[in-house]
Design a protein around this nucleic acid. Structure first.
Lengths: 204, 204
DNA sequence: CTTCATCGATACGCTCGCGTACCGATACGC
DNA sequence: GCGTATCGGTACGCGAGCGTATCGATGAAG
């Protein structure tokens, strides 16, 4: 166990003589994530990733050992939140803005989540990386928005609907493609927030 | 096109000399769906299905020609709705009951949906079969519940939240495993309906 | 009872990806 | 500059699954 953690490349350590620049590394990561979106996790092969980036299989195996570790690294490189800096002054405004932004990223993110959805149930590291990359940052940002709303007194702290706001936004994002056959765009999400989320919070 | 429709086995036609009883057929269908839930769509192979049911690959290929058509047939065999016969007399009661039942089936259904989620984007017939089997019957039943609620005057016909009730329930069903790492059980769904769905409809 | 399509079983050639091992060439650390 | 580890590339043996073909046995139709 200890040795396993030690030999992991993780982020480029203090003294490793890799010739791969961070930009080059990002090329690998972009390639594998794109292939996942296109073909699904199972159908992605190290060979195709290598070919599409003009690197050799040897390099990929040397650096990341296995496909799940490689994909996990690619996911971690995308760690970010799309909800940062939202502050319109009102809870309703913040949620509308969050919904709009969620809709903008919906296609890329839900496709990736969809493609990884099943693989995640079979690999803990992959699951963890996916949560860190696509889920937790957004949840945290949403919670922050809600917290400010409560502080401003716009909604009671014990309003039971508060707990379900992230699940609802995340949910319709994934539900609409299945239910209606088209992706959840910003318009749809904003309308959803106005029609369902805000009323449940007793907001106009 | 015409010939394609003609040579499809679909339901056992008028004069096909198949030795496969409906029970035997259902064994094949159960096997492939279980394997999909376990390994994911891509990893399912005709060979494994054949082996696990003691039939030969020849038979599967003879009957269904390709994997997607076979899986589609398996899905169609599961066509059903879990929301039939719900009628507690009030909209809130009906929705609570629907949520409870949805939670009961959540594990099996969301696993299947998850496993097929990406394959569905690459095969129209598969997508259609999945909608017919797992989505449309439930939507229809939910709409019926809502319609009765409107007729009873419990909620205004033009309440904008009405349109989003199916998406809400379907959504959290798929969102919770990702957000909290555990499946949406009946308890969770009922709490969700009471905390978010009913308030959005201005119901107690 | 006869006929014959379909059954389960097995074998075949083929493609694909795996993971490893090698090869000069090259760029990094000293 | 000089070693040397890593680079891109290629080749290898291996196993898995595909889709087809062929076999004797069997059960349904007439």
């Amino acid at each position: 166990m200890t040795s396993q953690a030690a030999e992991r490349p993780e982020t480029v350590g203090t003294s490793r003589r890799s010739k791969i620049t961070p930009e080059r590394e990002q090329e690998f990561f972009d390639a594998v994530l794109n292939q996942i979106r296109e073909c699904g996790y199972d159908a992605v092969t190290m060979e195709k990733v290598a070919a599409s980036t003009r690197c050799s299989k040897s390099t990929l195996y040397r650096q990341w050992r296995t496909k799940p570790r490689f994909v996990a690294a690619a996911l971690r490189s995308r760690r970010q939140t799309r909800f940062t800096g939202i502050d319109t002054g009102t809870l309703a405004g913040d949620l509308r803005e969050a919904a709009r932004r969620a809709g903008e990223w919906a296609v890329k993110d839900t496709t990736l989540l969809q493609a990884l959805g099943h693989a995640v149930t079979r690999d803990r590291e992959l699951a963890q990386a996916l949560r860190e990359a696509l889920v937790e940052p957004e949840i945290a940002a949403l919670d922050e928005i809600l917290r400010r709303g409560v502080e401003r007194g716009e909604v009671a702290w014990d309003n039971p609907a508060l707990d379900y706001v992230p699940a609802q936004i995340f949910g319709v994002l994934r539900a609409r493609p299945v239910l209606e056959g088209e992706d959840a765009d910003p318009d749809y999400l904003v309308r959803f927030v106005e029609a369902a989320v805000l009323p449940a919070l007793s907001l106009p």
